[in-house]
Design a protein around this nucleic acid. Sequence first.
RNA 1: UCCCGGGUAGCUCAGUCGGCAGAGCAGGUGGCUGUUAACCACCCUGUCGGGGGUUCGAAUCCCUCCCCGGGAGCCA
Length: 462
Amino acid sequence: MERILIKDILYKCTAGETVTVCGWVRTRRESKGFAFIVLNDGSSQETLQLVVPGDAPAFGELHRCNTGAAIRAKGILKESPGKGQKFEVEVSEIGVFGDSDPEKYPLQKKGHTLEFLREIGHLRPRTNTYGAVFRLRNILASAVHDFFQSRGFAWVHTPIITASDCEGAGELFSVTSLDLENPPKKEEGSVDFTQDYFGKRAYLTVSGQLEAEFFAMSLGKVYTFGPTFRAEDSNTSRHLSEFWMIEPEMAFADLMDDMRLAEEFFHYLCVAVLEKGESELSFLQNQYKRISLEDLKRLSETSFVHISYSDAIKELENEKKSFEFPVQWGLDLQSEHERYLTDKVFNGPVIVTDYPKDIKAFYMRLNPDEKTVAAMDVLVPKIGEIIGGSQREERLDILEMRMRQTGVPLDNLQWYLDLRRFGSAPHAGFGLGFERMVQYITGMPNIRDVIPCPRAPQTIGF
RNA sequence: UCCCGGGUAGCUCAGUCGGCAGAGCAGGUGGCUGUUAACCACCCUGUCGGGGGUUCGAAUCCCUCCCCGGGAGCCA
């Protein structure tokens, strides 16, 4: 179908050319003798003004060009005498692909709340806001691959269905093909999962990290980028039951290498959206006033502040401000503490390192002080933790000890321990919640507005 | 899951002390020769979130459940 994208008109066409465009009607304004149609085709934030003269053949189709209708318009590109756009199209022909009943179409030309638009998830990408968000999401997804591919990382497709129930990263969704009304039972009454599809219990993955580790211990540098699942009853603007995670893993790397990679990665993503998504960012900035192009530019150039957990605790203890939760070495940093460090003390991203071993996962490498582990969290203003990573424990005896201490069953993870038995090596990696990054960059207040079909407790509408 | 605040027309909201269900926008019709969330006039629009209770009478008071938002926990 011959047509030109609206995003291309500005720099590929000149006044006087005949063009054909396709898209969805945003608004129609009629005067005596002629009409204006504002058209968007999803290719960019831009809309195109169509002018339909009263004597054009297209005028007869005008009554069908209601908000939401899909149309094709052919006409001559002209410099617009009106304010607000450089070009407009003086239309001679209009073809309507799909009508849209204005009494029933839920999107109006006026603004809607994000909460309302969330109820019509299948139509919300047609709005300026969600168009911008999902184009930016795409820019970021593409930049994720560009970054790692250009640095020699291999994309590893870790499984979505897993038998590991001991990764310790939250509640799991079960995967089963058993008849839930009448499952096979063992003699003592519990469900007999040996008769299930896989012959044992299976779950949706909560992380691809453990699998990524054995690929790092063979291909050297790898990353995962795919969906992960948490069955926690979290009802917040920062949590989803299904979200995408990026988990790089590097052999022959320590915590310093890990932090350097995280910072370069973060900078790379900021630069990518500034280069490719400026009009989308500008729109969101004007609309929601949460993050500015200047903020992003500064972020893309600013080194992360590094601070150890122990020093962070001292910093928080020194503040006169009273916190709701106690500040004490050995306790995890609460949201209010993280926000205080990023928003008040350092006014930017902060990497906190070397957390007490008791509040971190079993696979993180024990430091020489035997009290802390080689962990790092990247905290950003407003959102909090966006990246969590560590150098992994590569010493078999210490790893086994840590697993016993933290109650992780060794039986199911012999394959993981094998990596320490055969050619073990220092390695490190981190995880970044993709939606948190999209949320941070777009400035959207709720994470449910940066993923096409948000899944959360009681929420699986689309 | 916990603590607050909400749920009234398609959307955004008002509704006083318990006494006739309201406004703006959207939509419809008409008008207007350059509009930009166009403008002007008129018209249409209701399971007051669901269920139960108190009362002569409930959008309004009480109980309960559901949903949404903000914050917290869990976490990325």
